[in-house]
Every structure is written in structure tokens, then in C-alpha cells.
Nucleic acid binder design. Sequence first.
RNA 1: AAGGUGAAGCGAUCUGUCGCGCAGCCAAAACUGUGAGGAAAGUCCGGACAGGACAGGGCACCCCGCUGCGGAAAGCGCAGAAGGGAGCAAUCUUUUGGAGGCCGUAACAGAGAAUAACCGCCAGAUAACAUUAUUUGGCAAGGGUGAAAACGCGGGGUAAGAGCCCACGACCAUCGGCAGCGAUGUCCUUGGGGUACGGCACCGGGGCCUGCAAAACCAAAUAUACCGGAAAGAAACGCCCCUGUGGUUGUUUCAAAGAGUUGCCCGCUCUUUUCCGGGGGGUAGGUCGCGAAGAUAAAUGACAGAUUUAAAAACAGAAACCGGCUUACGGCUUCACCUUUUAU
RNA 2: GGUGGGUUCGUAUAACGGUUAGUACUCAGGAUUUUCAUUCCUGCAAUAGGAGUUCGAUUCUCCUACCCACUA
Length: 118
Amino acid sequence: MLPEAASTLPKKERLNGKKDISALLAGGKWGSVGCLRYCSKPNALEYSRIVVSVPKRLFKRAVKRNLLKRRMREAYRTSKQLLGACPQDILFQYISPEIAELQEIRLSVETILKKLAK
RNA sequence: AAGGUGAAGCGAUCUGUCGCGCAGCCAAAACUGUGAGGAAAGUCCGGACAGGACAGGGCACCCCGCUGCGGAAAGCGCAGAAGGGAGCAAUCUUUUGGAGGCCGUAACAGAGAAUAACCGCCAGAUAACAUUAUUUGGCAAGGGUGAAAACGCGGGGUAAGAGCCCACGACCAUCGGCAGCGAUGUCCUUGGGGUACGGCACCGGGGCCUGCAAAACCAAAUAUACCGGAAAGAAACGCCCCUGUGGUUGUUUCAAAGAGUUGCCCGCUCUUUUCCGGGGGGUAGGUCGCGAAGAUAAAUGACAGAUUUAAAAACAGAAACCGGCUUACGGCUUCACCUUUUAU
RNA sequence: GGUGGGUUCGUAUAACGGUUAGUACUCAGGAUUUUCAUUCCUGCAAUAGGAGUUCGAUUCUCCUACCCACUA
């Protein structure tokens, strides 16, 4: 695995489209770690795809939601090599009512990726 | 120097590493360029744009209503006029009006809330006979109530009183002069005397309805208007096994119904059922609307260093565009003005 | 994104701009009963927040906050 490719997050590695997301929600496995909840499902592609989500119920201001989504993407980008060679679709959902720091989110994301790599 | 009032403005900058959206070459990589706000917010107004409706005109309905200028328009901006309120002041804030016809309301209190007689004042008559009572009439000067009580004060006048009359004022309307583009102000002439609020009618101006999830283009699956072609059904008795409103089944019998075409028959056509092919509108989806930020689960971040700073910390993130309004906001700069104190 | 509607005791609801904001259930106290339930009496308890119009605002106007519905 190339070290440059390990820390990028191009558009094709993001899950989009109503059908794919519905399929993930319908057939994925759920779990939660720390301030995050995740839902994963293996896919048939050569790379993994992710979705990040912050509920509007917890944070009314768009600025705070954008901040948390950026932190979650950043944490996944810097630590996605932990996932190894088993591609899957992952949904990250933020469930804490408080704004967490980047280190805390990174810790949760790394725990989730280690679990999913097994 | 301290406090305050008004107006305008800033909303950190630079460098390096990693990373993201879009564009630049047909695709990828690499490279280059570019990438949130003063409010992007609330959606409170208006516009532009788009579709639908619509010959033209009127009524109804809705909105606005002091003046001038700006503006495409606006519950818009600037400057002003009149009245009220806050402040020592700088200054801030709020209201109306055009015309005055009709109607409604004014709780409680109070005699009375809009054709005012409870107490009271005065005159006449009767009973009674110094006085009082009853009754008829006149009177808005005094009382107290209330948010609001029928111009103020002085004099004349009268039975008692009253703008009833007079002088001086206040208010409303008005011919004329002067100032002003104008609202209006001021001087003068003449006239007036039941308040406040709201609605209707009248006058002037404006307004069709819906909204980018609008609209336009391409267009699966399913159902289907329409067109072309082909076929037809029912009953009885058997046969089979999965025993059912069963069937890629056999034999026999009758060859369907309605309408039209001449009264009848044949023939022909159409409808009712099934299949095949074509085909229109149109859904999912995609493109466009869409921009030198601009996507379609949605891009601006992370780390390190330097400068100003006590500390990079406030409110807050474009989803079609434009002009306003309103609301949120740490820290700070500039200008003008006011008050207080000190010094010259 | 766009367009509408709403917020009244703990709950469900009413109000012409005008008494101390009414009614039912709930809660508290008392009476009735041997006791409990039922019933009766009494009480506590609210106009989302802030300005304005008015003599006076739940009501009329504006701003803010929150909730609900419709629209692909």
C-alpha cells in the first residue's frame, strides 16, 4: 500500500446515491464506540466508501455540523490504512450532544476501523 | 481625562507540509488557476426570471396613504413639515393626516359617555301659612366619578344662569399678502362652537395565480389513450394428479352478444376479451436552469512557524439571482457633536 | 429550498379589546362512610419571551424562540 494513497479521500471513496445508502441502512451491521455510531456492509469494489452524518436534532447551527463532519472525515483520512484489504461501505453518525475534539474523534474512528478489519 | 450621542469602517496577515470542490487538455495522473459573509441567517417586503390563466373594460376583494428627491419597485432610503414623549444636552423615539357623509363603541365608577338635571340654583301653582312638602317649568355656574364631562379668565347681563353679549387669549376652518418646489409657517380678513376611537362609503396610487422542489431537454420498469396485425367463446361426457372456480388434454354439440348499414336475411364495419408489434403523454434516473465559489448526502480543513496582541478568540457557513428590512456579534479604528472636571 | 398554521394552570380546551382569565380531568385539604370507592365542599395552579397602539391587550401590530403540516 502506497503511503501517499493512504491519506487521500477522493470523491469516489464517498458513498452517494439514494439506492446505495438505502441498501447500506437496510443490510448493514450497527455498532457504537464513544461519540460515534457506525453501520458497515461489505461491497464488491476495490476500495471502501464512507458517509458521515451529524443529526440536525443535536446541533441546530450549520457551522457546528460542518465542523464535526470535517473532523470525522479528517480522522478517517489519516487512519484508513487500519482497515486493511477488506473493502466495505461505512456510515459514521455522530451521537454525542457535545462538540468533541479531533483527538477524541480520531480515537473512536481508529477503534471502529480495527474492529471492522477483523 | 471621564461619560455619552450620531455617522462610517475593519471582521487578522504571511510562509511551509498533507488534504478537499470546480475549471483548464478526450479520460486518468501530474501541474496551473480559483474557492463563504457583513450579516451568507430570519424569510418580513419588492424585483427579475419561469409556467398557467387572460379580447377589451368595469364592479367586487386586498395593500399603501403628511411633503420633496432618489429608486424597477418596496412594510425602501435621504432630507424636511406638524403634534406628543425621553434626556441637563448632543440627540433619540412615536403618531397622524387627503375629504368630513353615514353607522357603531365608550367596560367599572358616575346623575349623565353625547337629543346630559342626581345633589343644587331660580320662578309659578297647590297644600300649608315666618318654614316645609308636592308639582310644572327654566338653568350646564358649583359638587363628586372617570382615561375622557361639552373652550380659559374678567366684565356686562339675568328670576337664576349660560359665548347670551363684550375685551383679551386658546382651538378649528378660511379669502388675501409674504416665505418655501411642497407639506407648511407667519400677518391679516371672515366664520365656528358635543369629545375620543373604529368601521363603511368617497378620493389618489398599486395589485392576475403559482413559484428554481418553477420551467426546459433526454428517458428505464409498470400500467395505458391511440394505430396495425392475429385469434376468439360456451356446454356436456371422458382422461391426468397436486383433488382444485385445476389442466400446453381428447370427443361431441351449439358457433356468442349489442349497435349501424333499407322492413327481413346474407355480407360488411364498430364495440366487448386475449396476444404481438408500433406509439404518445410521462414516473424513477440523468442533463439543464447554474454564474471567474457554486455542488447534489453537498467543497474552504488539519498541523507547524513568524508578525501585531494579554489571549487569534465574537456572531456565524453560499444551495438559482438581485435590491431592501429585521435580528445576532468579542475586540477595535476614524470623524463630528454634547455634558462634567482640571490646566492654559 | 419554498409555502402555510400554531404556542393559555400538570393535561385537554374556552374567551366581543373591559370584573379576580372560565370549564373538565389531575393534585392538596375537609365532609359523608366502620374503612375504601363514589358523591359534595374548599384550595393550589397558566396567556411562550420582548417592544408598540390604546384609558385598558390572551385578543390588534412588530421582533425573537420553539412546535406542527404541505410541497420531490
